[in-house]
Simulated assay, not measured.
Amino acid sequence: MQTTLPDPISRYFAADKSDGAAVAQCFTETGRVTDEKQTYRGRDAIRKWREEATSQYTYTVEPFSVRTDGEAVIVTGHVSGNFPGSPVDLKYRFVLADGEIDSLEIAL
């Protein structure tokens, strides 16, 4: 299913298929990611988070729902791969600033 995403979020999901540096460039300098109860602040920490995740698991994400909640954009994506519990639908809560992602929270 095609889902129309705001440009910074579309760039994030495209970069997620690439590498950690590409993912980190989707964020503001002081951007933040919270995933699996851990928070990563700044582009370097975000790059390392993404590289660590992909060194352990291979996965794909297919966004299928998008909605707004105040200042946040909530994207639900179907995630499948070689990780425990696959497949799973995850919620990605993005907050944007100046055409970049300022924060991302990933949760069930």
Rank of each mutant, 00 (worst) to 15 (best):
H78D: 11
Q38P: 10
T68F: 11
A72N: 09
Y12W: 09
Y40R: 09
V23S: 07
L108M: 12
D102V: 08
T34L: 13
L104N: 03
T58E: 15
N82P: 11
F94S: 07
V33S: 06
S55Q: 14
Q56R: 14
T54A: 05
N82C: 06
K48F: 01
F94C: 12
D102W: 02
R41V: 15
G77Q: 03
T34Y: 01
P84Q: 01
L90S: 01
V61R: 09
S65H: 15
A15D: 04
D44K: 13
A14F: 05
A21C: 06
Y59Q: 06
G31R: 03
F94R: 02
R32A: 10
V75C: 06
D44S: 15
K17P: 01
G20I: 01
A97Q: 14
V75I: 07
E71K: 14
R32W: 03
T4K: 05
S55C: 07
Y40W: 10
E52M: 07
R41D: 11
A72G: 02
F13V: 02
I46T: 03
I74Y: 06
G70A: 06
E100G: 10
A107E: 14
D7F: 03
V95M: 06
L108W: 04
V61F: 08
K37R: 07
P87T: 09
P8V: 01
I9S: 01
T39N: 08
P8E: 02
G81L: 11
L90I: 08
E36R: 14
T76S: 08
P8C: 02
S65P: 00
F94G: 13
A22H: 03
G85M: 07
L96E: 14
K91C: 13
V75P: 06
C26M: 11
W49L: 07
F64Y: 12
E71A: 15
E62I: 14
A97L: 13
R43E: 08
D44V: 11
E100M: 14
T34S: 12
H78E: 13
A72T: 05
M1G: 14
N82M: 01
E100A: 15
L90F: 15
Q25L: 09
T58C: 09
D89F: 04
A97F: 05
E62K: 15
G70C: 05
A24N: 08
T68N: 14
D35W: 05
T28G: 11
V88H: 08
G31Q: 05
C26E: 08
D102A: 15
I106N: 00
Q2G: 09
Y92I: 12
E51M: 13
R67M: 12
T28Y: 05
V75F: 04
E29C: 09
A14V: 12
V95L: 03
R11D: 05
L96I: 02
F83T: 01
Y59C: 00
P87I: 13
V23P: 01
L5S: 02
V75W: 04
K91E: 08
G85Y: 03
P6E: 08
F94K: 04
A21W: 12
T34G: 08
Y12K: 00
F64W: 14
D44Y: 09
R93T: 12
R32H: 04
C26L: 06
E105H: 00
T4C: 09
T28S: 13
I101R: 02
C26A: 14
T34H: 05
Q25E: 15
S10R: 13
Q2N: 15
Q25V: 04
L96T: 02
